[in-house]
Structure formats: C-alpha cells, structure tokens
Measured scan of single mutants.
Amino acid sequence: KWTIEEKELFEQGLAKFGRRWTKISKLIGSRTVLQVKSYARQY
C-alpha cells in the first residue's frame, strides 16, 4: 500500500519527469521502478 507521501512524490515526479519511471523511483526512494510502473497503470 502506497503512503500519502509516496503518492505525492509520484505526482511530483510525473509532473517533473513525465513517464521516466527510473527517475520517479529514485525521487520516491522507497519504491522500485517496477512498483512505480505498476502504480502508474492504476493512477
């Protein structure tokens, strides 16, 4: 389950980097690239 903080970081990353999942993953820190991709599908 994603925390509110992780969701906010995901949204910031999406706005800043677009669909560059590796960069978003590094920004969040606690999620892998695969987790970020998977979350993006449901987002």
Rank of each mutant, 00 (worst) to 15 (best):
K1H: 06
K1P: 06
K1G: 13
K1V: 08
K1S: 13
K1F: 13
W2D: 10
W2K: 05
W2A: 04
W2R: 03
W2H: 06
W2Q: 05
T3R: 04
T3F: 15
T3I: 11
T3N: 06
T3W: 13
T3V: 03
I4V: 08
I4E: 14
I4M: 13
I4F: 13
E5L: 01
E5Q: 11
E5I: 05
E5Y: 00
E5K: 13
E5P: 09
E5C: 01
E5W: 00
E6T: 03
E6K: 15
E6P: 14
E6S: 04
E6H: 04
K7G: 05
K7F: 09
K7T: 05
K7C: 00
K7V: 04
K7A: 08
K7R: 09
K7D: 02
E8F: 01
E8H: 09
E8S: 13
E8N: 13
E8P: 05
E8V: 04
L9D: 06
L9P: 05
L9S: 08
L9W: 06
F10T: 05
F10L: 07
F10M: 06
E11H: 06
E11V: 09
E11G: 07
E11L: 09
Q12T: 12
Q12H: 08
Q12V: 10
Q12C: 07
G13K: 15
G13Y: 04
G13E: 00
G13F: 14
G13R: 06
G13I: 06
L14D: 08
L14Y: 08
L14K: 04
A15I: 13
A15G: 10
K16S: 09
K16N: 08
F17N: 03
F17A: 02
F17H: 07
F17Y: 12
F17Q: 03
F17I: 05
F17V: 03
G18Y: 09
G18R: 10
G18N: 08
G18L: 10
R19M: 13
R20I: 11
R20E: 15
R20Q: 14
R20V: 13
R20L: 12
R20T: 11
R20P: 04
W21G: 01
W21N: 01
W21T: 00
W21Y: 10
T22R: 10
T22Y: 12
T22L: 10
T22H: 13
T22A: 12
T22W: 06
K23E: 14
K23M: 06
K23A: 13
I24A: 02
I24N: 01
I24P: 01
I24H: 01
I24T: 02
I24S: 03
S25W: 10
S25D: 01
S25G: 10
S25A: 15
S25K: 10
K26Q: 11
K26I: 03
K26C: 07
K26W: 02
K26N: 12
K26L: 04
K26M: 05
L27F: 11
L27R: 02
L27S: 06
L27V: 06
L27H: 11
L27G: 03
I28E: 01
I28P: 02
I28V: 10
I28A: 00
G29N: 00
G29H: 05
G29W: 15
G29C: 08
S30F: 03
S30V: 03
S30P: 00
S30G: 04
R31M: 05
T32C: 07
T32M: 05
T32W: 11
V33L: 11
V33H: 07
V33I: 11
V33P: 15
L34N: 15
L34W: 13
Q35V: 01
Q35H: 04
Q35I: 02
Q35W: 12
Q35L: 07
Q35Y: 01
V36C: 08
V36N: 03
V36I: 07
K37D: 03
K37S: 07
K37L: 12
S38H: 07
S38V: 08
S38P: 01
S38M: 10
S38Q: 14
S38F: 03
Y39M: 08
Y39G: 01
Y39I: 08
Y39K: 06
Y39F: 10
Y39H: 02
Y39D: 02
A40T: 01
A40S: 06
A40I: 11
A40M: 08
A40Y: 09
A40V: 12
A40F: 15
A40D: 02
R41T: 13
R41K: 14
R41F: 08
R41P: 02
R41E: 15
Q42T: 12
Q42F: 10
Q42L: 12
Q42S: 14
Y43R: 07
Y43F: 14
Y43N: 11
Y43W: 14
